[in-house]
Amino acid sequence: MSEEFLRRLDKQACEWAEGRHRTKRVGLWMAVFLAVGTVLEYVLGVTIDRNLPIMLAINIAEAAAILWFFMHVRRAWRSEEH
């Protein structure tokens, strides 16, 4: 096997690992964000009256995060091949 081929293979493996690492980082941060948001919602919901504004704010933030990071809403206007 040529050195060029091995170098290219190594580069592809690194890119693959980097992409996987980035994906898991996004997944982890989203999991933390959603968990914190849900617990905060629960605590506010059972302890505070007239909680509608803050609860709505938390809901919209969670929904926006899911739409952006998980559902890739920006792709709706792009024609990517897959």
Partner: peptide, 29 residues
């Protein structure tokens, strides 16, 4: 595309629950 579409649908169902849960269990005014 099949994988992406079915998973997007799952996320949509999740977003709906993000609103339904507090509407049913937590909201007060």
């Amino acid at each position: 595309w099949g994988v992406e579409a079915s998973i997007k649908y799952w996320h949509f169902v999740d977003v709906v629950w993000v609103f339904f849960y507090p509407i049913l269990y937590l909201f007060s005014w």
